[in-house]
Amino acid sequence: MAFPNVYTHRKVADTKAKSCDICYKLSTSVLITADNKDWFYVCPAHLKDTGFCTPKIDHAAIEARRKRELDEEVERVKREYEEKQKKKKEKEAKGDKKDEAEDKKEKDDKDRAKTQDTTDQVRTSNSPIAKDDATTLPAEEEEEPRVFELKSNGSTKRQLEIAKRNRERMQDPTFFPSVPKSLP
């Protein structure tokens, strides 16, 4: 019975970690088929090895996510623009009751606030905490691939079991024929 060559990457609890079937290091990553019949523990480093497996990327989901992000950005910009227009109209309705000095002072305060906001954004974008917060995605939108296709020389659980059984047979002294004891 041939197993499908498409495996899903799953994580298990640290208490359930077992040794990787390839390098025997402790691992919490498991590759499992859709029908749950074939599975094996594997290190995350092996998942990045192109000689072992290749990720199957869902291009439609990536494009949908990009489109959604772009739409959100457009909506945000529209809202900001509408707010600015509303403030501008309110200011025109009040009329120019302030004199030039107050306008200049207000403009300077706004410029200082903008420069402070941009420096704060730069500081937070350079900090590792902000990067983690910005890159944190819901579980359904992980950046790393979850579905893999093994290369033809990849070791599946069945192949590993066959190799183990063959090693056990070769250690059995009755596996090989005995030397003849009589003359021919």
Rank of each mutant, 00 (worst) to 15 (best):
F3I: 14
P4G: 12
P4D: 14
N5D: 10
V6L: 15
V6K: 09
Y7R: 03
T8A: 04
R10I: 07
V12Y: 01
A17K: 04
S19M: 09
D21A: 12
D21K: 15
I22L: 10
I22P: 01
C23E: 07
Y24S: 14
L26W: 00
S27A: 14
T28E: 05
S29R: 02
V30C: 01
I32T: 15
A34N: 03
K37N: 11
K37S: 10
D38R: 14
D38M: 11
P44N: 09
P44E: 13
P44H: 05
H46A: 02
H46T: 04
H46W: 13
L47R: 06
L47A: 10
L47C: 13
D49L: 03
G51H: 08
G51T: 09
F52P: 04
F52K: 05
C53D: 01
T54R: 04
P55A: 04
D58Q: 05
E63V: 03
R65Q: 07
R65I: 00
R65M: 09
R65Y: 05
R65P: 00
R66F: 10
R68D: 12
E69F: 06
L70G: 00
D71S: 14
E72C: 06
E72D: 10
V74S: 00
E75F: 07
R76N: 12
R76S: 14
R76I: 09
R76H: 12
V77F: 05
K78S: 09
K78F: 10
R79W: 07
E80M: 13
E82H: 14
E83H: 11
Q85R: 15
K87Y: 01
K87T: 04
K87D: 05
K89N: 10
K89I: 07
E90S: 06
E90R: 02
E90W: 01
A93V: 06
G95V: 04
D96W: 09
K97T: 13
K98W: 13
K98T: 08
D99T: 01
D99Y: 02
D99H: 06
A101H: 13
K104D: 13
K105Q: 06
K105Y: 04
K105R: 15
E106C: 09
K107D: 05
D109N: 12
D109Q: 14
K110L: 10
A113W: 07
A113E: 13
T115N: 08
T118H: 14
V122M: 10
V122Q: 08
R123N: 14
R123Y: 13
T124C: 04
S125G: 02
N126Y: 03
S127I: 00
A130K: 07
K131T: 10
D132I: 15
D132R: 15
T135P: 00
T136P: 01
T136F: 07
L137R: 15
E142K: 03
E142P: 02
E144P: 01
E144M: 00
P145Y: 03
R146Y: 01
R146V: 11
V147F: 05
V147E: 04
E149L: 06
S152E: 13
G154C: 08
S155G: 11
T156D: 08
T156C: 03
K157H: 15
Q159S: 14
L160D: 08
E161C: 11
A163T: 02
A163V: 06
R165M: 07
R165P: 04
R167T: 01
E168G: 01
E168H: 08
M170G: 01
D172Y: 01
F175P: 03
S178A: 10
S178R: 12
V179A: 15
P180D: 03
P180W: 05
L183C: 05
L183H: 09
L183R: 11
